[in-house]
Design a protein around this nucleic acid. Sequence first.
DNA 1: TAAATTTGACCAGG
DNA 2: CCTGGTCAAATTTA
Length: 279
Amino acid sequence: MVELCGGEGEGQIMLATELAQLRAMARELEAKMDPDRVAARELCRALASSVDRSIRLAASCFPPPEHPPPAAGNAGRDAAFKKRKGMAKVRRQVRVTSVQDTASLDDGLSWRKYGQKDILGAKYPRAYFRCTHRHTQGCNATKQVQRADGDPLLFDVVYLGDHTCGQAAVAAVAQRAPPEHAGQEQQRQSSLLAAGTEGIHQQVVAEPMEAAAPFLFTSTAAGGVDDGYFSFISPANSDCQFSSDFSAGSVGVDMDHEARFEDLFSNTLEFFQSEIHNL
DNA sequence: TAAATTTGACCAGG
DNA sequence: CCTGGTCAAATTTA
């Protein structure tokens, strides 16, 4: 049985960690901001406090370590992940939408594509990635990227398994030290792009917690890619939907409290993005 | 030339 | 037997 979620306590910690990083980034940004840009600095401060509140919320609203099995309604999809024995336990799903600026989905980890499959009933193929260090470090993390049927601007990214290689740490560091060193960044990008995730910006849909969150907002330029299936780079919604709607055939993850963060996140990120865009 | 991607074949579960 | 996930040879890219 696939465990959609890790331990609750762990999830709480992970979320808190993520939020703490967000806050740190906001503060760092504020510090680096041109002093003349009062409004911008103000926004950053607001962002930091908003995240701060989120952290407190996270601490208070997580339920005690008792969690019923994941909601039904995604049995079909889930079944796919139960099949193989030795299947990774951790599953996180992220919905990604491409956006105006060149930011892209880069989780700070390096992936290698090992397959692509047409999925029954789905318009677009699903791409399979594994950690580049699978052989050198025995890292079993994998991820699947698939363009959503309904909205061409959406991608479903499913992470399976944990990185046991050094990359998780690398990712954490990368989140604090953004774009300047874009060299390697772009290489990674290319593999992602080939998977059809170019131009992506947004993430997060549902994230059964556990393990270091793999997301990172970067601003690497999206290279051109011509994968017949995924060749589009499109300016799109600038809003950050922290969508927890699984109706579009996503994973159904039973996370009540997630909704509580939705607002905070969407507000905060929206905030952050539009301001950054002006800088 | 090494590393990454592509793609058809193979395998396991249902 | 069908489907989704993985393998691995061939091919492409850096």
